[in-house]
Design a protein around this nucleic acid. Structure first.
Lengths: 124, 124
DNA sequence: CTGGATCCAGAAAGATACTG
DNA sequence: CAGTATCTTTCTGGATCCAG
């Protein structure tokens, strides 16, 4: 799990599409590759605090998209994994990601054009 | 344009998927059927205030998803319509809506189960 | 290691009143 | 008709410190 896997696009306030809260979509994409522990999740989502990640995980668990398992053994840890429902959501998510990638330049251009027009307005 | 077209599902805090801000997705779906005026948009989106709708429309315009045209003629009005980019976003939006509809019951059940488990925790 | 508790800043949403 | 201005409330995310 590369620590920089989300550096460029996510969390990007530029994408107009969001799944769950700020981090939920990224969590799902990490878990896509298999179950992960709390501290493993924090690596690619660098910058997220424990509290906020917990919130996000609780929300996903509440919606039945992930499951949480506690292992109280010698090396106690907690494991999160996708449920079938969570896995099924990867489909519309992929469609959304594909759209964003395909139209990324258009989005950037539109914003630039809009802000230029605004500046002209103010200049009168 | 039925005034109640969004009453049931939208704006639903239950859907974990969102396009733009709270009202943006609904605006796009209204404009799907052709250009609409400001006051026409307010009908199906009942409850939205002029300020908030304006904000949402500005955001969509800024992203190049809709265009705004002012008609200063005898009966002055403003018309909003989808751009090709905006229309293209209907595709991933439809995928998201289909997923929500298909899994709506599962989502509700998951929430109920989660809250029941919470209540048992507090009791136990 | 995996969080909970508390406090805080900024964004988002809404109520209300007013304007070209 | 189509907004703007102002104010208030609510929500979100984060910082910091603490605990089983």
């Amino acid at each position: 799990m590369r620590p920089d896997m989300f550096d460029e696009l996510c969390p990007s306030s530029l994408s107009p599409i969001r799944f769950g809260d700020k981090w939920a979509g990224m969590v799902l994409r990490v878990l896509e590759h298999g179950p992960r522990r709390f501290s493993e999740l924090r690596v690619p989502l660098h910058g997220v605090t424990a509290k906020v990640l917990t919130q996000s995980l609780r929300g996903l668990e509440r919606d039945g998209l992930i499951s949480r398992t506690v292992y109280a053994e010698s090396a106690p840890h907690v494991e999160y994994r996708l449920t079938p429902l969570g896995r099924s959501m990867l489909v519309p998510m992929a469609a959304a990601c594909a759209w964003v990638e395909e139209h990324w330049e258009e989005l950037l251009d539109a914003r630039e054009a809009y802000e230029n027009a605004e500046r002209l307005d103010r200049a009168g």
